[in-house]
Simulated assay, not measured.
Amino acid sequence: MSLREEWTVFRLAVQFLTRLPVGEPAWSAERMALTPRWYPGVGILVGLISGAAFWAGAPVSPLFAGVAAVAAGVLATGAFHEDGFADMCDGLGGGATRERALEIMRDSRLGTYGVLGIGLLLAGKVAALAVMGPWTAAAALVAAHAGGRLSAVLVMATAPYVRDHGTAKPVERGAPGWGLGASVAAAALVPAALLVPWGAAAALALLALSHRLVRRRFERRLGGYTGDCLGAVEQAGELAVLAGIAACL
């Protein structure tokens, strides 16, 4: 594939996962099917934005900086992944059957499980960031956003999509070239590894654990994944990486 074509695929990935302005990249089903390999790259971009917000908020207090970083990530993505996490909490928490769980997850209204889940998730991210200095936080945010998206890509590469239509339908044909995404995510971890070596190791371990636990939960209940499940495993991955680095400071 030419560099120009790859650039178009990357821009489509940015357009799909964020609200960042990328112009109007030429859309096609074939190009969209290739976008998952660039999801960790999009994560690096969002992580840099969040890291800049942390630096901007650091003079106020570490806690304020953590809130600013998380808010910047939410604004950059339009809460795309957070919405999926909340919907999966509602669906798996309130649905007694597979069919009912899928019905609840499609409902745009937010329930008790979703509110509690997203509240605890965001609090966990802010708490982890609040113990970091600006350089460490910036490196951790880049690693977290890339690692979380790699976790979602691995689900796409190894599990079936269970809906006939939905947000993730355009990219439900696996994740061709996912090795590129893994390489990008590995590169995103390098700055954190240089600053906090044991933290990077702990982040990888917790990322793998979160991936296993979250996907085990939704695959047992649904027999595969939905777009909401991808958002959930991505958000769990972000928190896992931040927690791993924070724990080793």
Rank of each mutant, 00 (worst) to 15 (best):
M1R: 14
L3Y: 15
L3V: 14
R4W: 13
E5P: 10
E6L: 15
T8Q: 15
V9G: 01
F10G: 05
R11Q: 14
A13N: 01
V14W: 03
P21T: 10
E24C: 13
A26R: 15
A29Y: 13
R31C: 08
R31H: 15
M32I: 10
T35Y: 03
P40T: 06
I44S: 05
G47C: 07
L48V: 12
G51F: 08
W55Y: 12
A56F: 09
G57I: 08
P59M: 06
S61N: 04
L63K: 10
F64D: 08
V67W: 11
V67R: 06
A68Q: 11
G73I: 04
A76T: 07
A79R: 10
H81K: 09
D83A: 12
D83E: 14
A86H: 09
A86T: 13
G91F: 12
G91H: 10
T97I: 09
E99C: 10
A101T: 12
I104S: 00
S108H: 12
G114V: 05
G117L: 03
G117C: 00
I118F: 11
A123D: 11
K125G: 05
K125R: 15
A128P: 00
A128F: 04
A128R: 00
V131S: 13
W135R: 14
W135D: 14
T136G: 07
A146Q: 03
G147M: 01
G147Y: 01
G148T: 03
S151E: 06
V153R: 05
P160L: 11
D164S: 15
T167P: 08
E172N: 15
R173P: 09
G174S: 06
G174C: 07
P176E: 06
W178M: 10
W178S: 07
L180T: 13
V184N: 03
A185D: 01
A185M: 00
A186I: 06
A187V: 11
A188H: 03
A188F: 01
A192L: 12
L195Y: 09
P197L: 09
A200E: 04
S210A: 07
H211M: 00
V214P: 04
R215V: 02
R216L: 12
R217C: 03
R221V: 06
G224T: 06
Y225W: 07
T226S: 11
G227H: 01
G227D: 03
D228A: 09
D228K: 07
C229F: 02
L230T: 08
G231R: 05
V233H: 01
Q235M: 15
V241H: 02
L242K: 02
G244Q: 01
G244A: 02
I245N: 03
I245M: 09
A246E: 04
A246H: 03
